[in-house]
């Protein structure tokens, strides 16, 4: 007698991946699809794909998806959710999209407490355009546009988005998670589910930052990228629950 232990979520298509070997986007996409299946919301979901590597997310997700101009995913999500408050709306964004060109939209959407979810994939680099310095690139990290490493004095330190948003009053749930191990991936799924359930309960703005490997532009192997995410990245971006149930978590 055979028993099905795992199958592809209905919310995920069987499209062949375009992501590089060792990339975290595939894991994050799958976790989202699993949560959507578990919550039974595939047919009421509208997702917003960013500009960046994940722009093609709509090829992998088996539900309604919109593109957004670079950095504008939060604004597009706001438009959709306000137009259709009964639908489930989330935006999926990378670090350049969300924390550089889309900073204004990110902060103001959070400050209005829009009843949407933002999945923020932080891998410290622009991927699609060829590994340039991102707002989350770490001091000393070499990229296509910081060939000698990010310099604190002329380029400033990396932006910690969860910490920034945690200064606002209205966000309901903010957590930083990681994809560095099977245990971390399970915690990431739990965070995504917490965020999605919050919106379904009408609680307001939820933000999940996912620290993610990018072997190609972190200039290492897939295993090396996992080590990078687990080690140096988490020294700068600590994995942490910042806010739950609308209240800040005590230090």
């Amino acid at each position: 007698m055979t028993k099905t232990l795992y199958k592809r979520p209905e919310a995920l298509t069987d499209a062949r991946t375009h992501y590089c070997p060792g990339c975290g986007h595939g894991i994050a996409h799958k976790l989202i699809a699993e949560v959507i299946d578990e919550l039974g919301i595939r047919e009421k979901t509208v997702a917003i794909a960013p500009v960046g590597c994940a722009v093609l997310a709509y090829n992998y997700w088996n539900f309604d998806c919109s593109e957004a101009a670079h950095g504008r995913a939060s604004a597009v999500a706001t438009g959709i959710k306000r137009a259709l408050p009964e639908k489930f709306v989330f935006a999926y964004q990378g670090d350049g999209d969300l924390a550089a060109i889309g900073t204004a939209e990110t902060i103001h959407t959070a400050n209005r407490g829009e009843n949407i979810c933002i999945i923020f994939v932080n891998n410290t680099v622009y991927g699609m355009t060829g590994g340039q310095m991102a707002p989350t690139t770490m001091i000393g990290q070499k990229t296509a546009t910081s060939p000698k490493g990010r310099d604190y004095h002329t380029m400033g330190p990396p932006i910690k988005v969860c910490e920034l948003l945690n200064t606002l009053e209205k966000p309901y749930y903010i957590e930083r998670v990681s994809l560095d191990s099977p245990a971390s991936i399970r915690k990431t799924k739990k965070a995504i589910k917490t965020a999605f359930e919050a919106q379904l309960a009408g609680k307001g703005y939820s933000f999940v930052e996912i620290l993610s490997p990018c072997p190609t532009y972190q200039h290492t192997t897939p295993i090396g990228a996992m080590d990078f995410v687990k080690g140096p990245m988490q020294e700068v971006f600590p994995v942490k629950l910042f806010r739950k149930d609308g209240g800040k978590i005590n230090e």
Binding site: V46, I48, S66, A68, A69, R72, A75, V76, A77, T78, G79, I80, K81, R82, A83, L84, K87, A104, E105, I107, H108
Partner: peptide, 16 residues
């Protein structure tokens, strides 16, 4: 928060 945000909210509402 800006004209850019406003027109992109329009994009979202129209897509909906």
């Amino acid at each position: 928060e800006s004209e850019i945000a406003a027109v992109n909210m329009v994009y979202g509402a129209s897509a909906a």
